[in-house]
Structures are given as C-alpha cells and as structure tokens.
C-alpha cells in the first residue's frame, strides 16, 4: 500500500517538474533589508493602480519611430557595468531603464543588441529574484531568428508585465515602483534627446504630457521616501517636476463617437487634451532630464 502511495507521489512530483517549465517559485525569500516598505501613506491598492497604469516601455519608442526618426545607439544606457550594480534598489531601477531600451531596440528590430539588453535584464532580474519570468533561451532564439520579431517583442513585454505583476502580488511594490520609474525616466530621456536632435511638435507635446505621469510617480516614490535611497530619487524627480510647474494642460470637451468600419468597431474620442509648453521650458526639461538620467544610469 505504502509502496503504491510512494509511486503515485513520485509521479505527481515528476508531473510538477515538467509542468512548471521553469523555477517560478512563489516562496522566494529576498533579503531586501535596505528597502523597507514601512507605513504607507497611500493605500497599496492606489500604489498598484498607479504602477499598473504607467505606460508600456515601447510607447515612447513607437512615437519616435512613427516620426521617422532613425535609430541611434547613443540613446541607450550602456550595459557594461551591469554586474557592478549591487543593491536591489539600483538593480530594480536599472531593470526599468534597460526595459525601456529593450522596447526601443525591439521597435527598430535591432536584434543583435536585443540579446545584450535581454542578458542585462536577466542578470538584474535574477538578482532581485524575478529572473524566472525571463526565458532567456527562448528570447535569444527569437532574437536570432529574424522571422519571429513579433514574438520577440511580445515575449519580452509579456515577461516584463508578468514580473511586475508578481512583484506587486508579493508585497514588493517598492521594486515595481523603481522599475516603472526607470522605464519612465529612460522613455523621457529618449523623447527629450530626440527632441533636441530633431525637434517635432508631437514630441514636444508628448514630453509636456509627462507632467501627468510624473505627478503620479512622485506620489508613489514619496510613499517610500523614509528610505534614504528613495528620498534621493524623489529629490531628482522633483527637480524635473519643478520644470513642469508652468507646463499647461487644458481640455476641450467632446463626446466619443463610435463607428463601424468593415465590421470593426472604432471609437473616436472628441474630447482633447492640449499641452502648452514653451521652447524654453522644453529646453530646460531636456537638460535636467539628461542630468538626472545620467546620474541614475551611472549610480
């Protein structure tokens, strides 16, 4: 009887090892002693809402590409010092920065560099114990096969989203907050650098709109600012925010208009947001964003 039970147990364990297809452990203990969530001033639900709402790493890159701007390596953060990034605070922040760069590379189908950035992301993700979400072997294979570029984009973005969800589900929202801050600052850096090299009204508007996101990011980073590293990051974000003080966003009302085209439903929004940002404000934002981003990349 006991023998049969043991055989059944063995088969079950075998099935688990096959089904799990990786090491997505739900019980990982992480030493994050340098990061303390402490008493939160805003609810966890609100923090999760803000983190979840922040734009995807590819949206800024998509805008840049749609404007016909050529790809340039100079907008990317270097990956050569990734092994020296030693605290979970810096690892999470850098993970976001490289995530945004990966989105930029994917958008331009720069598969050779994609592998380098996936590798950097995997290294950092392993350090903060979320490396299980990045199937490096598959991502690398897709990057080497030019026919699977859509799959590569999908899998890398999905891995990123899964990692973020896992962190939030496991009360590690402080790391998620750092990752999205990294994504955001690198996206803003890309937009501002491109705007500096090739000014375009759409870019200026998109940079101005970042006021909305920055206010929300500051809200969550402030929430963890009892920790000195978060307090320093908050200070840097506030430097940028100060420049946004006089950037105006106004709204013209309008009703959404649904229409059907070839059996497809399209909703046209007639309410509009309008950004007023002067050249002087834009130039200041370009300069300070570069300073802050370079500091964070070199941190």
């Amino acid at each position: 009887m006991l023998k049969n039970v043991l055989i059944v147990l063995f088969i079950i364990l075998l099935v688990i090892s096959c089904k799990s297809g990786g090491d997505k452990s739900e019980t990982l203990e992480v030493d994050e002693s340098e990061l303390v969530e402490g008493d939160l001033e805003i609810s966890k639900e609100t923090i999760d809402d803000i983190i979840q709402s922040v734009s995807s790493p590819v949206e800024m890159a998509a805008l840049v590409k749609d404007l016909g701007i050529k790809f340039s390596n100079k907008y990317l953060a270097p990956t050569d010092h990734v092994d020296e990034i030693s605290t979970s605070f810096k690892q999470a922040l850098s993970l976001g920065i490289y995530g945004a760069d990966l989105g930029y590379l994917n958008m331009y189908n720069k598969t050779a560099s994609v592998i380098e950035y996936i590798s950097a992301i995997k290294t950092l993700a392993d350090e903060i114990r979320v490396g299980q979400f990045f199937d490096f072997t598959t991502l690398k294979r897709l990057a080497q096969n030019y026919q699977n570029l859509d799959s590569l984009m999908y899998l890398s973005l999905r891995s990123f989203n899964e990692m973020d969800q896992y962190l939030r589900d496991n009360d590690r929202s402080h790391l998620s907050a750092l990752i999205i801050t990294g994504v955001w600052i690198e996206g803003l850096y890309l937009a501002t650098q491109v705007a500096s090299d090739a000014p375009h009204p759409s870019l200026a508007e998109r940079i101005g709109e970042q006021k909305i996101i920055l206010e929300k990011l500051i809200l969550i980073i402030k929430n963890f600012s009892k920790d000195s590293q978060f307090a320093n990051l908050l200070e840097e974000l506030n430097r940028i925010n100060a420049l946004y003080k006089d950037v105006e966003i106004t709204y013209t009302p309008g009703e959404p208009e649904p229409k059907e085209e070839n059996g497809m439903l399209i909703i046209i929004q007639n309410e509009e947001s309008i950004v007023k940002i002067s050249d002087e404000q834009l130039n200041e934002i370009i300069a300070i964003t570069k300073e802050v981003r370079d500091k964070l990349v070199g941190a």
Binding site: I212, M264, I268, Q269
Partner: peptide
Amino acid sequence: EFPYFDFKCQKTGV
C-alpha cells in the same frame, strides 16, 4: 459583440 474595438485617443490621461 466584437472581439475587439479600436480607440482613437485624443486626450492623455488615466
């Protein structure tokens, strides 16, 4: 019923 719909966004926001 539609499996999806497209939304032409004119207002940045939540």
